[in-house]
Design a protein around this nucleic acid. Sequence first.
DNA 1: TCAGTGAGGTTCGTTTTCCGAACCCGAGTG
DNA 2: CACTCGGGTTCGGAAAACGAACCTCACTGA
Lengths: 186, 186
Amino acid sequence: MARVCFPNSELDWGTMAGTYEAQNCTLARALELIGERWTLLIIRDAFYGVRRFNHFRDHLDIPRAVLVERLATLVDNGLFVREQDPDHAARHLYDLTPLGRDLWPALHALLSWGTRLAGPNQLRFVHVTCGTEIDDHGDCPACHVNPPPADIATEPRDGKARGRTDAVAVALRQRHTLLQPLDAVL
Amino acid sequence: MARVCFPNSELDWGTMAGTYEAQNCTLARALELIGERWTLLIIRDAFYGVRRFNHFRDHLDIPRAVLVERLATLVDNGLFVREQDPDHAARHLYDLTPLGRDLWPALHALLSWGTRLAGPNQLRFVHVTCGTEIDDHGDCPACHVNPPPADIATEPRDGKARGRTDAVAVALRQRHTLLQPLDAVL
DNA sequence: TCAGTGAGGTTCGTTTTCCGAACCCGAGTG
DNA sequence: CACTCGGGTTCGGAAAACGAACCTCACTGA
């Protein structure tokens, strides 16, 4: 797995490989892990509760080999853990680690920015304890708190959520709390 | 410029090309514009005040052809404007539009997340009116406001900001307000 | 006025990555 | 004991990134 060359502001990584303490451009460092194509969409799906290889595959229409590679680097870098499915010997489960979950603010900020391009997101993000939709900063305007993803649920913005027919897309037509495994519904 | 295929949650873009209103996955839409390699680093440099082709080039060590292409799509998509330099007929200036500036929260969130990987960023982001370093949410903990980028300045975290020797990197060793053109210092 | 320089690109050949279809193998199922 | 499903690997073609060379225009200085 060749090192992706995302140069930073002040230091050359070619000569500094490994010395993370002296590193300054943390954006470049972040992009080295999550800046590749598909990666952020895989992480989004993980927040939605997707855990299995084929569910990522079906929902994203991503080439198998690319998904294998992305999941491997996400596991290598500590954003995901891969474990055996206790109920099915032949299955694996991919779960976000705390490091991966910490990406929620960045993910939500990008998603919010996207609404400036394409209008509101078809899935609403609501605070589970009060049902209010969270704002662009990720805050609940009713409770004046910044809920973590586990306190946020998705629901279709209006009734006409249509289009994809894969199992994940269908399951997300019901209200669903982030990070809750979708496996049960599938 | 082929359409980058970032599939969304519910709709297939192949069949929905152009109908942005019916679009739901705004993250996929956002990544279509800023998810390609180098793009977010170019935008970061624009926040730092970089405006000229060769300054992006020198600071990022990006291949010329790639930079040409990225700037063109950023202009096409309304994140940057390209204008003549009034003082030098042979120069162009690239500036962030309001749409591009709206990316600041997402950019800062990613940068903050990167500190969990590599330790603190070498550049600090401080609230210009009080000098306090802004927190992970982009808020000023002293003033309890969420300053826009124009109210945020960068300064080296400690004296030993070293490494790159290009003009932009050197200029950024002085305190500098975001979005203020660096041209004067260069 | 004319060589030299810097700015912003093009062009081109090589290497890397992406893509999609086909194949594979172990575990459960009927 | 055939069949399917889950999670991959392999392979050949297409696209993108890369880096070095080249090119044109505007200014500069002698």
